[in-house]
Each structure stands twice: as structure tokens, then as C-alpha cells.
């Protein structure tokens, strides 16, 4: 690990201003992903701004009947909150499908959204990787691509966003609240937070330099049957090959977000209109334009079949 200086932020704006001003500065919250990457020197911050202790660890109602989740709320606390379990069960289910108990106790809401891909070539500093070292190439496309992305990917990068939580938040139409270095606030629909790689896979979000996530809001509950179905190589503590986050209504309508297949939580609202025609029709629309590799083409079938299982479960 490279040496770094460390300080505790005194407010959200203080954190944002410091991060914008100091080259090489990074926020640290739970630290479970950042420190992992710092140990192998994929991340090499020269200054850490500890944003724990800013009072952003609370969950409360919004004026319009929704829920506001502080950026520093731990995954465990969010999954266990009775309002979340009752009204946004998809979010609880997605959270407990991710990581381990120890990690969920540290991992935060904002940190989970901003975690980096688990593409093995991103982690291996002996390999080319356009995300880690722009312009160096992508070893994954012709390499071990089985766990990687099939849609929204580019010639430069096929990494996936690894979050389970973000899949639920995408289906729930969450909004990400930020503070910029100049103190102004911004609300970003979660659909617009993560960007597709294109030719610049190192730029993963639409956040500006120093811009700091202070919380996530959920709109008022929409009812329905909430299902998070995660398919992975072992039954627990593994990243998704494919995951489906679904909110299905009695009238046959619903929302579907898919994990494990794309650089961001994958949701195509137009595909949801195909719900009455079944899983095959929905997944065809969801996956239109997919560019799988030979190794991960199975994910296209897996999305359709997992969605079929989810829809059958909701009808049962």
C-alpha cells in the first residue's frame, strides 16, 4: 500500500471541497472495497478523507411518503430496517444476497453504489486494463470473460457493476443526492449515476470532481411482489452471474432490473411493456443489442430463464 495522509471530514461540503482541492484525495467510508484495491495498488490515493461520523447514517421518511437513506447507512442496517423490509422488500433481499455478514456491517449505501468492478483483469496489475490504465487494452474480451458483461459493454471494456443493492434501487427508481464542492446540492436519478464505458471505461459515474453522495431517496412504496433472484456459482458470498430484481403487480405489470450483465444496473422500461407476453419477450427487449463473448453468451439464456422463474414465483 502506498503512503497516504488521513483526516476526518467535518461536514459533507467540507469533504467535497477537500476532495476537489487535493489531488490524489479519496473519500473512505466502509473502506471494504477501497482498502482491498489499495493493498494491490490498483487504488493509490495520497490522501484519505474519512466521511464516517458526519451524521449521514440515518434512515427517515420523506415529505412525500418515501424514504431517505443516509449515505453512511450500513448495508446491514438498511436491510434490517422494518420500513425497508415491509415497503421495499426488494432492497432488503438484494442487500442480504450480497457479500458476507462482516462486509455488510461495514459497507455503506454510497460506497456500495461506487464500488469498483470485480473483473479479474482490473485486479491483476500485470494485465492490460483500460479501466485501470486507460489505453492499455482489455485482456478480458479475449480472456476469461465468463463472469463479465454482455450488454452496455464496449470494445474498451466489458466489466460489470457488481452491486446487488443498486439493482434494487434501480427498480425502485431511487434518487441519489449529492453535495458539490461549492456547496450546491444535486439530485441524480439512479439511472443516470453510472455511465457506460464507451472509450473511457475509467470514468464510471456522472459525479463531478469532489461531488459527494449524502444520501439516496426512495419514492413512496408501490406495493407489488418483490423478488430478488440471484444466480451465482456458490450459494452464498459470491457475485452474481445474473440477478433479477423484480417488482410485479397483480395486473401483470412490473419492473425488472438485471444485475451481473452490464456496467450499470440494467433496466429497459420499454421491455416491461412486454410483461404480458412472458419472460422470453421481456428478455428479448431487455437484451436487444447484446454483445456477449463466446464464454458469457450463456447469460442471455440465463436472464430469460431466471426471469421466467421470477414471474412464475410471483404468480404462485
Amino acid at each position: 500500500m502506498r503512503p497516504f495522509t488521513y483526516e476526518r471530514a467535518t461536514s459533507a461540503q467540507d469533504a467535497a471541497a477537500k476532495a476537489a482541492r487535493m489531488p490524489g484525495a479519496k473519500f473512505i467510508a466502509g473502506g471494504t472495497n477501497l482498502l482491498d484495491l489499495m493493498k494491490i495498488e490498483v487504488e493509490t490515493p495520497t490522501h484519505l478523507i474519512d466521511v464516517n461520523g458526519l451524521g449521514l447514517d440515518r434512515i427517515g421518511p420523506t415529505a412525500d411518503g418515501g424514504l431517505r437513506i443516509g449515505a453512511l447507512v450500513r448495508n446491514t442496517d438498511l436491510a434490517a430496517d422494518m420500513r425497508v423490509r415491509r415497503d421495499y422488500a426488494l432492497l432488503s433481499r438484494a442487500l442480504v444476497a450480497g457479500a458476507s455478514g462482516q462486509l455488510r456491517n461495514k459497507a455503506t449505501t454510497a460506497g456500495n453504489l461506487l464500488q469498483r468492478t470485480r473483473c479479474s483483469y482490473f485486479y491483476d496489475t500485470n494485465q492490460p486494463c483500460n479501466k485501470r490504465k486507460p489505453g492499455s487494452g482489455c485482456a478480458a474480451i479475449a480472456g476469461y470473460s465468463r463472469p463479465l458483461g454482455v450488454i452496455g459493454v464496449s470494445e474498451a471494456c466489458i466489466a460489470t457493476h457488481p452491486s446487488d443493492m443498486a439493482i434494487a434501487m434501480r427498480a425502485l427508481d431511487a434518487t441519489v443526492e449529492t453535495v458539490k464542492p461549492d456547496g450546491t446540492a444535486r439530485a441524480i436519478p439512479i439511472a443516470d449515476l453510472h455511465r457506460l464505458p464507451g472509450a473511457t471505461p475509467q470514468i464510471e459515474t456522472t459525479l463531478e470532481k469532489g461531488e459527494f453522495i449524502v444520501g439516496v431517496t426512495l419514492p413512496r412504496p408501490i406495493g407489488g411482489t418483490h423478488i430478488y433472484h440471484k444466480v451465482r456459482d456458490r450459494a452464498s458470498y459470491a457475485f452474481a452471474l445474473v440477478s433479477i430484481g423484480a417488482i410485479l403487480q397483480k395486473d401483470g405489470s412490473g419492473r425488472i432490473a438485471v444485475g451481473g450483465i452490464a456496467p450499470k444496473p440494467w433496466r429497459v422500461e420499454a421491455a416491461e411493456a412486454e410483461m404480458p407476453r412472458g419472460a422470453k419477450a421481456v428478455s428479448s427487449a431487455l437484451l436487444a443489442g447484446a454483445k456477449p463473448t463466446q464464454e458469457n453468451a450463456f447469460k442471455l439464456t440465463l436472464v430469460e430463464r431466471t426471469l421466467g422463474a421470477v414471474m412464475a414465483q410471483a404468480r404462485a
Binding site: 473502506g31 471494504t32 482491498d36 455478514g101 456491517n105 461495514k106
Partner: peptide
């Protein structure tokens, strides 16, 4: 009161 991985925290 919470279990954590002591290797992944400063």
C-alpha cells in the same frame, strides 16, 4: 458490537 473483517479497515 458488530463483527467486521479487521484486515479491511484502518
Amino acid at each position: 458490537g458488530r463483527r467486521i473483517n479487521s484486515c479491511l479497515t484502518l
